[in-house]
Structure formats: structure tokens, C-alpha cells
Deep mutational scan, measured.
Amino acid sequence: VSKLITEALSVSQERVGMSLVALKKALAAAGYDVEKNNSRIKLSLKSLVNKGILVQTRGTGASGSFKLS
């Protein structure tokens, strides 16, 4: 899941990052079952932020906008 998230964010052209909703849409378009794996998406977002791979530009927790650091 982390690999899919970083790939989706690297393609994004948004300056402020990608919102959680837009990220879920991009994952669904890539063929990932978002409804079934919603908790996995949130956990991997939090772990990527803690590792310093992603930066959360808006919001708290697993909601808001994210971009690559």
C-alpha cells in the first residue's frame, strides 16, 4: 500500500499535495480495493509521515493533504 501511495503522490501535480479523498480515488483507479482496505491506507499514511517520507500539509491524523518530502 505504501508503494502505491508514494507512486500516486509522485504523479500528482498539486503544489499543496493530494487530499485523502483524491488519494483514494487515485488508488481506486489503479485497481486497489479502497473500501475493503481503508484502515490499511490510513495506517500506511501515518507510518509514511512518521518515517519522514510524506509531509502532511493540512489536517490531522490520516485526514487532510499529503505530499512527498
Rank of each mutant, 00 (worst) to 15 (best):
K36V: 02
L27W: 04
T60Q: 12
L27Q: 00
K24R: 07
L45R: 00
S2F: 04
I41W: 09
K42N: 04
R58M: 10
K67M: 11
S39N: 14
R40P: 03
V11L: 08
E14C: 00
K51M: 05
E7Y: 01
K42I: 14
N38Y: 10
V49K: 07
V49R: 05
R15E: 14
L45V: 08
R58L: 10
I53F: 12
K25N: 07
V55L: 11
L68N: 08
Q13V: 04
L20S: 02
A30V: 08
L54T: 06
N50K: 09
L48P: 00
K42M: 15
A29Y: 05
L54F: 12
T60A: 14
F66S: 09
N37V: 07
R58S: 15
D33I: 09
S44L: 09
S19M: 08
V1L: 02
K51R: 15
G64A: 15
G17V: 09
S12N: 06
N37M: 02
S44V: 15
V34N: 06
S47T: 13
L48G: 00
S65A: 13
S63E: 15
Q13C: 06
G64F: 11
I5R: 00
A29L: 05
V21P: 06
T6C: 07
V49S: 03
V49L: 14
S2Q: 04
S2R: 14
D33N: 05
L23M: 06
G61Q: 10
S10L: 05
L68W: 09
A22D: 09
L45H: 00
I5L: 06
G64L: 14
R58G: 15
A26G: 00
R58T: 14
V1M: 07
L45N: 00
V34R: 05
L45F: 04
L68R: 08
R40M: 06
K67L: 07
E35D: 03
S19N: 10
Y32R: 11
D33F: 15
L23N: 00
S12W: 03
T6N: 12
I5T: 00
G61M: 06
K24W: 02
Y32C: 03
E7V: 00
S69G: 06
V49W: 02
L43V: 01
S12C: 13
L68I: 06
A30W: 08
Q56L: 07
A8P: 00
G61C: 12
K24A: 01
V21D: 13
L27P: 00
S39R: 04
